[in-house]
Computed example of a mutant assay.
Amino acid sequence: MNLNSLLHVSRSGVNGMQKKMDVTSNNIANVNTTGYKEKQVSFRELLNNPTTNNDAPLAANAQVALSRGTGADEQSVNFSQGSYLQTNSPYDFAIQGAGFFGVRDADNQLVLTRDGNFGRDEVGRLVNNRGQAVEMNLTVPYQEWPTGTPVVDTYGNVSIVDGGTTTNVGRLVMYLPENNENLIADGNNQYRVAAGTNLATSDANPELFGDIAQNRLENSNVNLAQSMTDMIATQRAYSLNIRVLQSTDEMLSVVNRFTE
């Protein structure tokens, strides 16, 4: 392997470790973020270059290929279930299952989230902590909801209990994409659905989307101990690649002096 190739391999290692470090740091920063899903980076070997007898003396049956380094693939999301956090708010909801809540952004576009930290705004709408309206199938307009205690069953049916009277006011809609890999992270713990993706709703067979738990929030699924271990290993790998770059640079300096 010539020095230029070695520089390329080390540079790819530095870039890959930097991306891994960025993702791991982001996971650690969101360890207490409600409904946050851990991001992951996978690595792959870059295309090998074959070596022939014109490059280096080889045995007749030798098959040698020189690695061109490592590449960090696009980050993926670990959508595994997080643990429950007990709360005192009747408008806090967690999904035990694969479904997502839907909210409307400032452009009235649907985005998905696992963060069920909801409340009522000044006009009575059910909204998230950013003021975005939560998708519901209403049977009673928000402005006409009676005063009382909200009760939500596992399928998302919302009722208001006022004394001895129970009024069903609507149902939370859950969503399920055909493949979670088609979800595009949109920041703020939300995801957009890639164009052309089939998106099922809980209008039929809501039991397939998971159970909704009231007075609960879903914790982040980040394993803090594992993330800290990954960060230490990544820092060491980054340092090793930097040292190789420095050594290669020193060797190139020596070679250049010989050619002066």
Rank of each mutant, 00 (worst) to 15 (best):
G187V: 06
Y36P: 00
N188P: 01
S5T: 12
S25Q: 08
R68T: 15
N4K: 11
G196Q: 06
L47K: 05
P50V: 13
G187D: 09
G69S: 10
N215Q: 12
S247C: 04
G69H: 06
N15R: 04
V169R: 03
P90W: 06
L199V: 05
D230P: 06
R125T: 05
L47D: 04
Y84D: 14
G71M: 12
G187W: 03
T87F: 07
A106T: 14
L172G: 08
A237F: 01
N26M: 00
Q143R: 15
I212W: 07
T51M: 14
R11K: 14
T113F: 02
R216W: 00
N15H: 10
S12H: 07
Q235S: 09
V140P: 05
T139G: 07
N32S: 14
M136V: 15
R243E: 15
R243F: 07
N241R: 00
S12A: 11
V31K: 06
N198M: 05
S12V: 02
N182C: 04
V193H: 02
N61V: 07
D105L: 03
H8R: 13
F209H: 07
Y84N: 14
M17S: 11
V255F: 03
T166A: 10
T259E: 14
L224S: 08
A213T: 13
Q226C: 01
D186R: 12
G210M: 06
A237E: 10
G163I: 08
L138S: 03
Q86D: 15
Q18K: 09
G196P: 02
V77T: 15
D203M: 08
I184W: 00
Q40E: 11
E178Q: 15
V134S: 07
V9R: 01
N189H: 09
D249F: 00
N128M: 03
V255P: 00
N15F: 09
L58D: 05
G82I: 01
P150V: 10
I95S: 08
P57H: 12
D121Y: 06
N32H: 13
Q18T: 13
G210D: 04
S67K: 08
D153M: 07
R130M: 12
N78G: 09
M251F: 12
T34N: 11
N179T: 00
V23Q: 05
L245V: 07
T259H: 13
L85Y: 03
G163W: 11
A29G: 03
D73K: 07
N27G: 00
V254W: 03
T139S: 14
Q109G: 01
N189I: 10
E181R: 13
Q81K: 14
N61L: 09
L199A: 06
P141C: 10
N53L: 04
A237R: 02
A29W: 08
L47G: 02
E250P: 01
N49H: 11
N129R: 15
P177H: 06
N219H: 04
G187I: 07
M231D: 05
A204G: 06
V111Y: 00
D203T: 10
V14K: 01
N49W: 04
A225W: 01
L217M: 05
P206E: 08
E74H: 08
